[in-house]
Design a protein around this nucleic acid. Structure first.
Lengths: 199, 199
DNA sequence: ATGATTAGAATGAACATTCGATCTAGATAG
DNA sequence: CTATCTAGATCGAATGTTCATTCTAATCAT
């Protein structure tokens, strides 16, 4: 997840992520990060310019990782429906395999603590653009109803899966393969035309 | 929104809500709350036992307010589809009219800062239960496909609307009446059977 | 007057950051 | 092969600030 950083930076970033998810940002002090990562405070400041800097590096690293994960296993050559399913499957799998990173982005993507510059940099590595294109294509092919903006559709579907994951991570409900397939298929139906329904 | 509190408490709660949404919890100090609410720190501690206490009162008050808002304008006598539409319309309207309260719950409902007791108390006044019942009824009437848990369906739909609202509040997209109607209708279609489709 | 309420200065703890000292490894010289 | 040097890496104690909370005195209502 933090492959492009050195050992010390990795230790700090991993520890910070864990602490923030477990205990919340305000309860995550530099001295605690130092103790748990086994890197002295002085040395942390050798590699990061401030606490804010750590959080922002964390943000950028996770967003990039997530972006790569979600756009895996599918390409423009695949049929629209396949791309749709793979992408959302990836989103769910990402949330289940890397819950801390997922929760971190969920909690802090609108936080003033994250610099606008980090958010901008994040957007470039994101997957919203590619997915929007898939939806646009689905509309053009008559598989999705026209009328709503692709951007809005993606936003709604993303929200669905985020909340599914939240409920799962909170042990509020269970997610098995069958349920995931079913949820993705239902999502398709929300915007799908008769032509597109084949479930 | 804070009708059941006295003047001083209202001032403190309103100010705290505004500051937390504008500036984030950790940047919202007691002295700032005191200055902006025009209640001295000493007096704040006369009405609240701690900062945590303020946040938790805020949480409980908003959850109750939201619960009442969402279950307005519909009753068990209405047809399932009407109840479905009214409820989600209320959710969206709530988010648009009271964005701060909406954002606060979004950000802090999973926070360790909120006592479990507050969350429990919140659940009683919540609207998840009533909505789950509507979905259960829709399945029983053959309007919704069986297979998925009603709880999961509600969770997914709620996520859709939350993200729609987030995007709207972030000026990322515009929400007009037509779009809202269309989004709610699409949501119905996600789980709707052929019998139920009438759009 | 007296009990409740309000005010804001005082307190003490916690925290982000800095700083000077120490350590390490690799290069250079004898 | 050993001794010396050096620059970066690492350490943790010290600093100065911020903040939640408390305290004491003043004000108000009855």
């Amino acid at each position: 997840m933090f492959a492009r950083y050195n050992k010390v930076q990795q230790a700090v970033l991993e520890t910070t992520l864990r602490l923030i998810i477990d205990k919340e940002l305000q309860a995550t002090s530099m001295s605690l990060i130092a103790k748990e990562s086994k890197v002295s405070t002085g040395n942390i400041y050798h590699y990061f310019s401030s606490k804010e800097d750590i959080i922002n590096e964390l943000y950028k690293a996770i967003v990039q990782f997530n972006g790569e994960y979600v756009t895996k296993n599918w390409s423009d050559a695949d049929p629209v429906r396949v791309r749709f399913e793979r992408a959302w499957e990836n989103v769910i799998r990402l949330g289940m395999e890397y819950p801390q990173g997922f929760q971190f982005i969920e909690q802090y993507s609108f936080s003033p603590y994250i610099y606008e510059a980090s958010k901008l940099e994040a957007y470039k590595g994101g997957w919203c653009g590619p997915l929007e294109a898939v939806y646009r294509e689905a509309i053009a092919a008559g598989l999705f109803k026209p009328g709503l903006e692709p951007r809005l559709m993606v936003q709604m579907h993303y929200g669905s899966f985020v909340y599914l994951l939240k409920a799962h991570l909170q042990q509020y409900l269970e997610l098995n393969e069958e349920t995931i397939r079913s949820a993705i298929s239902s999502s398709w139906n929300a915007f799908g035309t008769d032509k597109a329904v084949m479930t």
